[in-house]
């Protein structure tokens, strides 16, 4: 059986908000290491990779690997019924037809349980190589969100170029062009999460669909910082770390020149 108790139930809402615009269903894999999800959007352009480590739960028990296929739209509806301060427990049997969500209010004066039907999902798993990125950019997540939103007002595709001087975001649309350069500022007085840091072994440049990048920024409430990892001619990774818990990562295939 699987049973996991999460003290910060609001975290589940944030995680679901970060994926609900991209996928409609997914297999949550329960394993002794934690709860994970890998799923692609319907166009197979982007991939979501979530890990919530077992150590991040107040109580975690998982005897064997259990794939828990869930409709994300329905899951969002159920988790919305939890208060943002509620403690959430997720429970299911080894071969579940249903998953139970138990919500306990912080003061323990209200207890609710919701049971949701599981579904069988034949999803394709991709092997994402554990690679060293040629360019890694760490920046405030709110700044990245703002930047993607501003770029999307002008064009559909953003070209991201990373050099040691900084990161240049460029786009072109019917009304004109936009360029925003973010420079690394590690020596200032900023707190760590307000800094922009760039680590590169060689300059990298590629084009990406802004519609997807904008969807990824729905994960902004999960982390004060976001990390972009790029390798020439490979998908970009956009990572939001969840403190003491794991991560939400998005991979996005680049635009290919004909």
């Amino acid at each position: 059986m699987f049973e996991a108790r999460l003290l910060q139930g609001g975290l589940l809402k944030k995680v679901l908000d970060s994926i609900k615009d991209i996928i409609t269903e997914g297999n949550f894999d329960c394993s002794p290491n934690g709860l994970s999800l890998q799923a692609m959007d319907s166009s197979h352009v982007s991939l979501i990779d979530i890990l919530l480590e077992s150590e991040g739960f107040e109580h975690y028990r998982c005897d064997r690997n259990i794939p828990m296929g869930l409709n994300i739209t329905n899951l969002v509806k159920m988790i919305k019924c939890a208060g943002s301060e509620d403690i959430v427990t997720i429970k299911c049997e080894d071969k579940p037809d249903n998953v139970t969500f138990l919500f306990e209010s912080k003061d323990n004066d209200k207890i609710s349980d919701f049971e949701m039907k599981t579904m069988t999902i034949d999803d394709e798993h991709l092997l994402v190589p554990d690679q060293t990125y040629t360019a890694v950019v760490k920046m405030p997540s709110a700044e990245f969100q703002r930047l993607c939103r501003d770029m999307a007002a002008i064009g559909d595709t953003v070209n991201i170029s990373v050099t040691k001087e900084g990161v240049r975001f460029s786009t072109t649309g019917d009304m004109g062009t936009a360029n925003i350069t973010v420079r690394p500022n590690p020596s200032g007085d900023q707190k760590e999460e307000e800094r922009t840091e760039v680590q590169i072994t060689e300059p990298v440049s590629a084009g990406f669909a802004l519609r997807y990048l904008n969807s990824f920024t729905k994960a902004t409430p999960l982390s004060p910082t976001v990390t972009l990892g790029m390798v020439p001619n490979l998908p970009i990774v956009v990572e939001y770390k969840i403190a003491d818990m794991g991560h939400v990562r998005y991979y996005l295939a680049p635009k290919i020149e004909d």
């Binding site: 394709e124 798993h125 991709l126 020149e257």
Partner: peptide, 14 residues
């Protein structure tokens, strides 16, 4: 003109 790549052309299936 650029085309949108698909993930399968970059990552292998498990």
């Amino acid at each position: 003109k650029s085309q949108q790549g698909r993930l399968e052309s970059f990552f292998g299936a498990v």
